[in-house]
Design a protein around this nucleic acid. Sequence first.
DNA 1: CATGAATGAGAATTCATTCAT
DNA 2: TATGAATGAATTCTCATTCAT
Lengths: 211, 211, 211, 211
Amino acid sequence: MAIVDRKLREKAEMRSRILESAKALFAEDGFQNVSIRKIAEKIEYSPATIYLYFQDKDAILFALHNEGFRDLFTRQKHQAKIADPVARLRGLLEGYLEFALQEPEYYDLMFMLFTPLPKIIKTAEWRYGRRAYRMLVKTVAECQAKGHMMNTSTDAAALGLWGAVHGIASLLIRQRASMLPADKQADIAREATLMLENHLLPFPADAGLHS
Amino acid sequence: MAIVDRKLREKAEMRSRILESAKALFAEDGFQNVSIRKIAEKIEYSPATIYLYFQDKDAILFALHNEGFRDLFTRQKHQAKIADPVARLRGLLEGYLEFALQEPEYYDLMFMLFTPLPKIIKTAEWRYGRRAYRMLVKTVAECQAKGHMMNTSTDAAALGLWGAVHGIASLLIRQRASMLPADKQADIAREATLMLENHLLPFPADAGLHS
Amino acid sequence: MAIVDRKLREKAEMRSRILESAKALFAEDGFQNVSIRKIAEKIEYSPATIYLYFQDKDAILFALHNEGFRDLFTRQKHQAKIADPVARLRGLLEGYLEFALQEPEYYDLMFMLFTPLPKIIKTAEWRYGRRAYRMLVKTVAECQAKGHMMNTSTDAAALGLWGAVHGIASLLIRQRASMLPADKQADIAREATLMLENHLLPFPADAGLHS
Amino acid sequence: MAIVDRKLREKAEMRSRILESAKALFAEDGFQNVSIRKIAEKIEYSPATIYLYFQDKDAILFALHNEGFRDLFTRQKHQAKIADPVARLRGLLEGYLEFALQEPEYYDLMFMLFTPLPKIIKTAEWRYGRRAYRMLVKTVAECQAKGHMMNTSTDAAALGLWGAVHGIASLLIRQRASMLPADKQADIAREATLMLENHLLPFPADAGLHS
DNA sequence: CATGAATGAGAATTCATTCAT
DNA sequence: TATGAATGAATTCTCATTCAT
């Protein structure tokens, strides 16, 4: 038993090591510029070994995709429990930003990468994405019912909020905010997000006091 | 003289044709998936001919980059003349969105593409970008001086606004907003942007009345 | 003893199973297109296990070769006992055709495959082939002594007869006779062989009546 | 003009050189064992160059296939004009053997190769094969109408004759007749074929005299 | 100015085989 | 006995780029 366990653990560890390396390389060089060879070199195994753990290059991307969505989804589950819709929506937005800041490699793969979506979008895993979006829309609608973001369609409000946080994160991740000092970028991003929330989703008690 | 002129004109036309084709192909397939050959085929010249007009593949991207920034900059020059800082800032944001919606290929290259920035960022041409950013920051500061977006650093406010519009545009361009009907996406994006402006940059008349 | 016996039996059974699978796969996909892995999968063992029973891929082919020749030789032993040379020669030809029709996988390996002969031909096992050929030549010579196939060298007569049956079988096996209905091919092949025999080796009673 | 001509000539020559080398290598090592690299080495060009002249490896095989059938068909056109069906059939058989003896590489590709038929058979070029077969059947039927090969279905007679020559040729080409001295093999094959013809298709004048 | 020809470098992938367990 | 893990060598094929014409 112990032996079987160890083998399974080792197998899983190897998979992880490959995924880690691939994730790092993708973030560094861009998915398209990473070859199986480079991944293999990084983990100091032969290219053929990679194929013992993943069917092909796409399968690696796919696995990372899944891991990323699983991570994001886990975070969102906590926030989804918040009763007050405004607090919940703020929680979702802030959680989303934190995810992007803490896991920029995943975030890039999931929400910024160009190519491989066609293959992935149709798969079961993309359901995470749709589900997350639906939760966002529902929460936005509840906030509107409470008087927030009036005079705006729910679709537009949802796109605006998601887009805003996505954009802030994207600019950092794809290095378009390099005019800001590197060590301050994350905090400035958080501040920017808070500013948006304060104007769009003031807490009831804060009404009139925000900005 | 006339002959020299014609030659120059022809040369410029050829360059344009190459750039047009490349732009279309980059947007369709992603930069990495476009080969010099494909571009050559599209303009019905041989691959070798491309090299008479551009030193290498990166140079094409670089030239498109420039064109894009020139275009964006031209648009911004008009908005920059608006006296009222709030109106000016709104104009800049809306103009930026329109640019992204009307020239998604350029936008993708300029603000979303992965790879080649290291090379590009250091060049003279990225000055456009810096200049545009400086103008944004200056305008934000003026708005803050008028009481908008208080309690937020200028950097954060600027990042928040730019990021918001960037994010909305990005989601459309990289097809992450496919849950919205294709023919409505642009209008919903505009509505979302307006919503943000209305909350963050209410017109003077609205002052104090916004949510 | 019993234990040793069982072990030996099991070992032989495993060898057989490998050979069976390989034979089927070779016939289906061609020798070159069959990987050790495919064979292993088919018998539901690991590729490494194959190497416990055979030194390498060629050794499998080699073993099948042997089995095929042993089978053919066994058949020929019966026919070799026929006293009348004409009846014997007819028996040999018909037996040879039946072997090709009933064991096309072996036949392909033995008489049609390209590659590996150089290695095989020099080995002891090819002795079967030589022995069979010598028997054919001897029988042809006896028939000629009885007035058949006169005016032809024994070598030519032997090559002609063997070649004829070989060709008929080959066309079927390598699917060049697909203009004939699949379920009739074997019978037409038999009829063709009989026709040749009737003209080249008429039974004594027929002498002078053929053609 | 001259320049264009020369270029075309050179292009055609290169194609030919590739085909020649491929043909030789296929015959030597078997189709499956010949890599693009080996072909490239043989003509002392880089592998990539091959792809300027042929889309892929199969295309080379395909081209050789075509050339072979064109050659065979040209030969048969002459024989097809012979008025007397017996003489015509003999001509066809002997011509077929000569083709196999003179162009064994083509013959191997066309009539003995294992794999690639599926792809090829469906193409226009295999029409040559079908057409040739139809001509054979027609001629056989005419011979039967004249009293030859009675008591045998036309299909069987055609298969018998084609198969006989094919088999004789195949044994030589795949080196199964190595018990005959190499320099005599072709002549013995011719003699064997003549023997078959003399028994199955005696010339009218010979009637009754053969065997 | 334009290009046909050529290629070195590198991509993904497969396979026979070995070996420690 | 059986195998999971690993790999070196090879395969087909693509591409950016160069250069003589």
